[in-house]
Nucleic acid binder design. Structure first.
Lengths: 189, 189
DNA sequence: AAATTTATTCAACACATCGTTTATTATTTC
DNA sequence: GAAATAATAAACGATGTGTTGAATAAATTT
């Protein structure tokens, strides 16, 4: 499973580079962030940066994929009861993870992050919930459209939730998303 | 209303710059596109670029706001019957516009474009449909979450629609989005 | 149609960041 | 402690940036 253990120095270098980058990303769009700048902030030699990342966008992507595998690992740690409300439980766990890592997640899911990542996040839900979905038989093409709607819609909700300071609990948000997905507005009137 | 008419040369310059830029945007992410490159493609002097735009991102933003005001103008040209299906009609018109301008729109709404624009597009729908929404009384905070879900979800559907070559009609897509928004999956089982 | 205004071009500029290299130093691992 | 590996420092040519001022070309105005 674990591929050797990585050198402490590498761990440190990557950590400070990530932190400096996220810090800068809070202040300005990625397009205005230079590699020189990231390295100065992190106090890491520029040549060292290049031995780990090809550019800012590569660094961003590595942070994102790190988060994704982190979420997957986090979910793997739980077994969900098969009583028809698995989707809510899974969503709840994901939202809890997002809550616990709000600093990074709020940047990555904001308009500073990129669209493809946002979709990747919610594809995890899709993957986890897919068995429940397919119980409700609809034709495949239609199902894919419903997926797109539900997945991107959920990202929108999470985005708003983060922006407003996460006032609701992860559980409440999960219930809301499931309701919206299953019954739309009619669930709330 | 109209603020003088703009010089023909300006019109031309801006047009070819936009075209060249969109062409490049189909090939690679905006971060890899240089101003030098756009100008060579358009056969426009680099100094001229700077007299109209500050950088690639400014150019992108201007294209986007152009599209938005274009859609608004397009919608203003129609009056919608007030028989409870206004939302469908408005959505249909918007989707027709997207269809007619598929080349630009598919780039702008893809992961090449930026998130804020995608949300702006669907805020037009929100604005247009808001009266119909508020009929169904829900509390304001909840309503905003529902908006977020519906709006971003709809963008997801449109994105998919464009990517798959717009097989459905604008009308069909409008109906699908309205159904998903109002009744969720339950509308399709 | 000529005069005037305005846009674009051209060439040059100093400047910053880029991405790579090479020798040297520091740290970690075994 | 020895060997291996990572980070540093300094230098490099290369490339794109953003701005300039003078010359040219095209539009609009009269």
């Amino acid at each position: 499973m674990k591929s050797k253990k990585t050198d402490r120095r590498i761990k440190y270098t990557k950590m400070v580079l990530r932190e400096s980058f996220v810090k800068l990303l809070k202040q300005k769009p990625i397009s205005k962030i230079t590699i020189k700048e990231i390295c100065e902030e992190a106090d890491i030699n520029r040549a060292t940066f290049y031995s780990h990342y090809s550019d800012q966008y590569d660094l961003l992507r590595q942070i994102e994929t790190g988060l994704l595998s982190d979420i997957n690992e986090y979910l793997a740690g739980y077994s969900f009861s098969d009583n028809g409300s698995e989707s809510i439980q899974i969503l709840q766990k994901i939202f809890e993870y997002v809550q616990e890592n709000a600093e990074v997640c709020s940047v990555m899911l904001s308009d500073k992050g990129d669209i493809s990542f946002q979709q990747e996040v919610m594809k995890i839900v899709q993957k986890q919930c897919i068995s429940e979905w397919t119980k409700k038989s609809v034709n495949k093409e239609l199902a894919e459209y419903i997926y797109s709607f539900a997945v991107t819609g959920s990202v929108g909700v999470v985005h708003k939730w983060l922006k407003e300071g996460m006032k609701q609990s992860a559980r409440e948000l999960a219930e809301m998303v499931i309701n919206l997905t299953n019954r739309g507005i009619s669930a709330f009137v």
